[in-house]
Computed example of a mutant assay.
Amino acid sequence: MYEYEQEAYAQGFRAVCGVDEAGRGPLAGDVYAAAVILPQGLEIPGIDDSKKLSAKKREQLYEQICAQAAACCISSATVEEIDRLNILQASMLAMRRAVAGLSICPDLALVDGNRDPAFPDGLACRTIVHGDARSGSIAAASILAKVARDRYMKALDAKYPAYAFSKHKGYGTKLHYQMLDENGVSPVHRRTFLKKWEAGR
């Protein structure tokens, strides 16, 4: 899980951050991203792709990562930005914001997936497909982004109880579409994701 980081430090990089996002697929809510710089040599037991972990384990690791990371930052892009830019560009924006918010300036970003978010200031970037299962710092970022977004969706559930956001986290489940059929679109729904549903009403 730490091979990419070790290789980068051996090549002379001084601060390597892992970057990942959460919430590209849902019909509602902001898209989140996190950036994490782990201290050289630190290996956090149990760290893995956030999708493979239970919610309880993610919460435990979230606290551990925040306590032990050399630097970390969680950011997001809004529903309005998703609808205006498209979800891919909004995800890239959230990633850039997360990296910009780090208290330590990284000189290399390891990014989950195959898209370079086009970081400013000449920050080197390496994209890693399935990086959240192959890089410790990307996995850490995936956990922070996922937990932060789940907490945000629970808060939205309290604000818009008719949509059961805490149950489906905004994803297009049968329950979610049922709630949409009954209540219509809320201010936190991604209108560009609902064109087919709206056309079929």
Rank of each mutant, 00 (worst) to 15 (best):
T192I: 13
L180R: 13
A10I: 08
Q6V: 13
S76M: 06
A155L: 12
L42Y: 00
A28P: 00
F165S: 01
Q68T: 08
A139W: 07
Y152V: 10
K174I: 11
S135T: 01
S103C: 15
A118H: 15
G41L: 07
D150R: 10
D181R: 15
R84F: 03
L108S: 05
H168V: 06
S135R: 04
G23C: 01
I82D: 02
Q64G: 02
P45S: 05
A124I: 04
M179L: 10
D48E: 13
A139V: 12
V185C: 12
Q40G: 05
L88D: 13
S75C: 11
Q89H: 15
Y171S: 06
S142C: 07
Y160W: 14
F165D: 03
A35F: 00
M179V: 02
H189Y: 09
A164L: 08
P39D: 11
R24E: 07
E21I: 07
G200A: 15
A94V: 04
L93R: 03
R14Y: 00
E5G: 03
M179A: 14
A90S: 11
S76N: 10
E5S: 05
Y62D: 14
G113Q: 03
A90Y: 02
S91Y: 00
K167V: 11
K146Q: 00
P45N: 02
A139M: 12
L42C: 12
S54Q: 11
Y163P: 01
R190L: 09
F165W: 09
L144V: 05
A118C: 14
K169P: 09
D181K: 15
A158M: 14
A35M: 07
S91G: 15
Q6A: 15
L85Y: 05
E81G: 07
M95G: 01
A145G: 01
D107C: 03
Q89I: 06
C66E: 14
A70Q: 15
R97P: 06
T192F: 00
Q11H: 14
I104W: 05
S54N: 07
R14H: 15
L175E: 15
L102F: 09
